[in-house]
Design a protein around this nucleic acid. Structure first.
Lengths: 238, 238
DNA sequence: GCGCCGCTTCGGGGCCGGGCGAAGGACAGC
DNA sequence: GCTGTCCTTCGCCCGGCCCCGAAGCGGCGC
């Protein structure tokens, strides 16, 4: 019966308020230092260090030292997907208030390194509906038409293919539908941010660990994504 | 910062080995008594009672008394979806052995009350690909063609619509793609089981809490689902 | 109605885990 | 080199949780 034990120890890593605050802060996709995470969690440096050691040990967080700083990120998009699912259930099962982060959070946000919210679901539906992606073992693969279209959009397909998974689903808790994760999801989000089709909404850093995940679609972004993928009709204005 | 706290307390409910064993056992969709769950978890009756009280309090488990027995089930398909996601990550992050439940578990299984595994993903792809489902807020809705086709298959659409959600995605951890949950997913699974298109693979009850989730597609089931939805070419033999 | 059975509540014991302060390495800049 | 900063390790205290045995409550069958 190895599975329930592994299941429980994984859940235990998320079951501490301080670690939960760190993990939700890391869902923004940014790499944060141990000190920043300590502040987010509201604990001292020693406690934060111990927590982060456990998260790294458990495979949820990856660390890469840089000088005297140690930057921490989520270990993979699969971790982000699970955190999102848990967060959605926490919001549904304890509906204290319907997600205190407002409409902007539901309309467009980052799930670690890829798009989520109504925008993420619409991009997923556009890619599949136009026949740019086809079902494959372990997720999706790009059709010839899809390769051409994605390249025309400026997506770096070679970079996307270097990820452990090229394209796979990720549950969107606010829409109850899948959005796109994997290397392709990451490259699409990176492209949209680099071209200023999407802007990160600046949130007050301290306090709310998930403020920096919110995104706003610019007019040019709406035009380009609408032409290419039929994304539109969404109430994506902040 | 209400969210990380709710997140943590939800994870804490899953973070105990005994509770994890109970929850994974309930993923079979069966309603189990407190005594059975105590045996599954390997603890005494008093401890099990306390654990179940916490799970009910936390909204993960629903209880309906029947005589001197108290039957427990997962509270919703959303709970099942989250448990599956967590289980998949636990298998991926601690790849002690690649899921000790064999190929049958990946090919067809129950996720609480709906189909999962390669079969579940194929059914989802068939429904969407044939234009029987169309995107809708919070999930999917049935197209006119879909209503006709589903009714011809013998699916009880009226019952499906009574669920809190008609149709929505649920992450399939083994395929990294979405399968279908919600009222429609439940009715499809119920129909397949009632017509003996699918059989529950009997597992030794004690010991492995997830053995009874495995399913086997019968020849007639393969024929009917293949004709209606194009499901085929899967290695679904046990 | 009496006794069995399933489940819950109560009390006590034990363990694990989280928090801090103080001290110890590692790196950058002057 | 020295100093400041970032981070970790160590030692300690504390609270919470998990377990069991014993007792209490309620339904069911003889």
């Amino acid at each position: 019966m190895t599975t329930p034990a592994a299941f429980a120890s994984l859940a235990a890593l998320m079951a501490d308020p301080a670690r939960a605050a760190m993990l939700t802060a890391l869902l923004s996709g940014e790499a944060l230092t141990a000190g920043e995470l300590a502040r987010v969690a509201g604990i001292g440096a020693p406690a934060a260090s111990a927590h982060l050691a456990r998260l790294v040990e458990g495979g949820l967080v990856a660390v890469h030292p840089q000088g005297r700083h140690r930057y921490h990120r989520l270990a993979s998009a699969a971790v982000a997907a699970t955190l999102e699912a848990l967060g959605g259930l926490a919001g549904a099962v304890a509906p204290a208030r319907r997600w205190p982060h407002g409409e902007a959070f539901r309309s467009a946000r980052l799930c670690y390194d890829h798009l989520a919210g109504r925008l993420g679901v619409a991009v997923h539906a556009g890619l599949v509906g136009r026949g740019w992606l086809s079902p494959a073992a372990g997720g999706w693969s790009a059709t010839p038409r899809g390769e051409a279209g994605l390249a025309a959009l400026g997506i770096d397909l070679a970079a996307a293919r270097q990820a452990r998974r090229f394209a796979c689903d990720c549950m969107d808790w606010s829409e109850r539908r899948a959005h796109l994760a994997g290397g392709l999801g990451r490259e699409i989000a990176a492209c949209c941010l680099a071209r200023h089709w999407l802007l990160r909404l600046p949130g007050e850093r301290e306090g709310d660990p998930m403020a920096r995940r919110r995104l706003r679609l610019t007019p040019e972004g709406a035009r380009c994504l609408g032409e290419a993928l039929g994304v539109g009709g969404l109430d994506l204005a902040a």
